[in-house]
Amino acid sequence: MMSEARAEEIQRALASNSPMNRFRSFMKGVWSHKKGRAGLIILTALGLLAIFGYFFAPYSPYNTNSLAFQPPSYQHLLGTDYEGADIFSWFLIGTGTSLVVGLSIALLSAFIGVLVGVVAGYFGRQVDDVLMRAVDVLLVIPGFPLLVILSAFLPPTLETTIFVLSILSWPFLARVVRSQTLSLKERPYIMASKLSGLNGMQIIIRDILPNLLPIIFINAIFLAVGGVVAQAGLAFFGLGDLRSVNWGTMLYFFQAEDGIVYRAWWWLLPPGLGIVILGIGANFLSNAIYEISKASKGNGK
């Protein structure tokens, strides 16, 4: 019979394995990784900007009472645009919109991509054939031209942009997830789970998805960045909701309203740098996640 003290100790040991604790220790790992920490700091900073930027914006983005094309000054930290609107305020508010668009695209396309990839990879045969043919079709369609066409025909709202971009981004992730699933499902531990009476769906949830988490996470980060960039790209060509304030519309108005003629670098730089910094942060973080997950899975050899 187990002693009281021993039973307690065991309970405590088991509790320390809760998903929350594991997530915490994973984040600790990321934090103690050089690139991971840099990535976290950058992305958190951008995230905070996105959430709270609105409250710190000194002007409304539609306030056009100042002079146009003013270089940075104390009144306008990042100068003004062609209508005299404050670019700093545009940037603060636009970051939020851009990141929300990116995140929505990442979530939506990751959800579809993972679902399709895992189901196709695990169940194989006809399921796989049908799903992968769909993926192939979507992958060979040249993305950007299609985007341009679709955006021109669908109502120009942010939701449309998110929807269209998601539809075009999930197939790649589905491919990656499927191939990973194919290799995972041959592992003996999957066989062990079958022998333990688990069915396909249970095995996917219990054995396969947790092993795919790092790769899904890394891909989702890039999907988000890609989403931000693609949305900005669409807006740059005047497609999508031009009334919305985001990095893309900033770029659009810069080129449409002769920002380049006035050498208004202060107008171009904030959205441009925003995208670059977001990309760098995402890269650092995904690198760190990759290395950490590889090390922790290490085959002991």
Partner: peptide, 22 residues
């Protein structure tokens, strides 16, 4: 399935790396 089981060759790939022993 309830009545049968298997012990595998490769101790490294017969346990799921993300699932605890318990």
């Amino acid at each position: 399935r309830e009545k049968t089981q298997m012990i595998f060759q490769d101790p490294y790939s017969s346990l799921n790396p993300v699932i605890s022993v318990y």
